[in-house]
Amino acid sequence: MQESINIFVKSIFIDNMIFAYFLGMCSYLAVSKSVKTAVGLGIAVIFVQVITVPVNYLLNKYMLTPGALTWISPRLADVDLNFLSFIMFIAVIASMVQLVEMIIEKFSPALYNSLGIFLPLIAVNCAILGGSLFMQEWEFENFGQTVAFGLGSGTGWALAIIAIAAIREKIRYSDIPKPLRGLGISFILTGLMAIAFMSFLGIKI
């Protein structure tokens, strides 16, 4: 349990998807012009991340790692399907996004109206696939940890996009050198925010 909390905190602040790994930068830069849309996209990412990371964990554990198929038959102990993990993960993500979209549409039209437009964007968000690949690379020990990681990395990403959106709303009134406007200053701001986030490295967890 304590391990899960550590992972949660670490994946929000220290191994932040944006500030430490630059994942999901495309939508981060494209959809951060207003706080309202940023919040919508942020929530959608958390939502999808919490679902896909654990699902891919199960897929990885019971199908992809070498010898994972022994639960079907002991004779399959030598089968190593690891080379399929990219394609399996992206398939799970694409179908999960589709599924989530349909479920939300059916049960909560209000939520669908605010989140709906972002969901298709998410299938190709690097942060989502990145979350699943990191899950595989870091060999989390149990289901709970992957949920914590999914929640944490999603929250970290949401935090980052909401923060930059807020800054970009304000920066409209600043006198920035013309060539730096828009994309350029966003990059530099993100860099400065990343430096600020590095102070979290000192957290003793």
């Binding site: 050198p177 060539p179 990059f187």
Partner: peptide, 28 residues
Amino acid sequence: ILPPAALILVGTIIWIQRSRNKNLIEEY
């Protein structure tokens, strides 16, 4: 070596490129 530097460097490259080619300048 740290991650933030990559972002600031990309920002700088964009800055240089856009000051040489004014067509690319964005309105916020």
